[in-house]
Simulated assay, not measured.
Amino acid sequence: MFYWLYTQMAAEGHVPFLNLLKYLTFRTGMALFTAQLVVILMGSRFIRWMQAKQGKGQPIRADGIERHIVEKAGTPTMGGVMILAGLIVGTLLWADLSNIYVWVVLFVTASYGVLGFTDDYAKVTKQTTAGVSSRVRLVLELAVALAAVAVLILYGARTAESPDLNTSLAFPIFKHFLLDLGWLYLLFGALVIVGAANAVNFTDGLDGLATVPVMIAAAAFGLIAYLVGNYLFANYLQLHFVPGVGEVAVFCGAIIGAGLGFLWYNAPPAKIFMGDTGSLALGGALGAVAVATKHEIVLAIVGGLFVLETLSVMIQVASFKLTGRRVFRMAPIHHHFEKLGWSESTVVIRFWIVAVMLALLGLATLKLR
Results as ranks from 00 to 15, higher is better:
Phe337Thr: 09
Leu282Met: 14
Ala143Ser: 13
Val291Asp: 02
Phe17Pro: 00
Pro172Glu: 08
Pro59Cys: 08
Ala292Phe: 02
Asp119Lys: 07
Asp276Phe: 04
Lys175Thr: 15
Phe337Cys: 07
Ala199Arg: 05
Met78Gly: 05
Ala143Arg: 05
Pro213Trp: 09
Phe33Asn: 00
Asp119Gln: 10
Ala73Glu: 11
Gly304Ser: 06
Arg67Val: 14
Ala95Met: 06
Ala288His: 06
Ala219Ser: 14
Pro76Trp: 06
Ala52Arg: 15
Asp180Ile: 03
Ile193Arg: 05
Val149His: 01
Val317Thr: 11
Gly131Tyr: 06
Val132Gln: 01
Gly208Cys: 07
Trp183Arg: 09
Asn235His: 14
Arg158Met: 05
Ile40Met: 12
Gln127Asp: 09
Leu179Asp: 00
Thr125Asn: 12
Ile297Arg: 02
Val214Cys: 12
Ala288Gly: 05
Trp4Gly: 10
Gly57Trp: 09
Phe351Ser: 08
Arg67Phe: 11
Arg158His: 12
Met42Asn: 04
Arg350Asn: 11
Leu191His: 02
Thr118Lys: 13
Phe320Thr: 11
Leu21Gln: 08
Ala143Phe: 13
Val124Ala: 04
Phe2Cys: 02
Leu340Asp: 10
Leu227Phe: 12
Ala11Ile: 15
Leu92Trp: 05
Cys252Asn: 11
Ala11Trp: 00
Asn201Pro: 08
Lys56Ala: 14
Gly43Pro: 01
Ile47Gly: 01
Leu178Ala: 11
Ala143Gly: 02
Ile297Phe: 10
Arg67Thr: 15
Met274Leu: 11
Ala199Ser: 15
Leu282Ala: 08
Val38Asn: 03
His334Phe: 07
Ala234Cys: 01
Ile224Glu: 02
Gln127Cys: 04
Ala288Trp: 03
Val81Pro: 01
Val132Asp: 00
Thr346Leu: 10
Val139Asn: 00
Leu260His: 04
Ala225Pro: 03
Phe177Ala: 14
Trp49Asp: 12
Phe177Arg: 14
Leu358Thr: 09
Leu32Lys: 12
Tyr121Trp: 15
Glu309Thr: 07
Gln238Asn: 14
Gly57Cys: 09
Val151Thr: 11
Leu140Ala: 14
Pro332Met: 04
Thr77Ile: 09
Val89Ala: 11
Ala220Cys: 10
Leu5Arg: 07
Phe328Gln: 03
Tyr6Asn: 07
Val354Arg: 00
Ala285Leu: 07
Thr159Cys: 01
Arg137Trp: 01
Leu263Gln: 01
Phe117Gly: 05
Tyr231His: 12
His176Leu: 08
Ala258Asp: 02
Ala157Leu: 04
Leu178Val: 08
Gly246Arg: 10
Arg45Asn: 13
Val149Ile: 13
Thr128Leu: 08
Ala145Val: 12
Ser319Asn: 02
Tyr231Val: 15
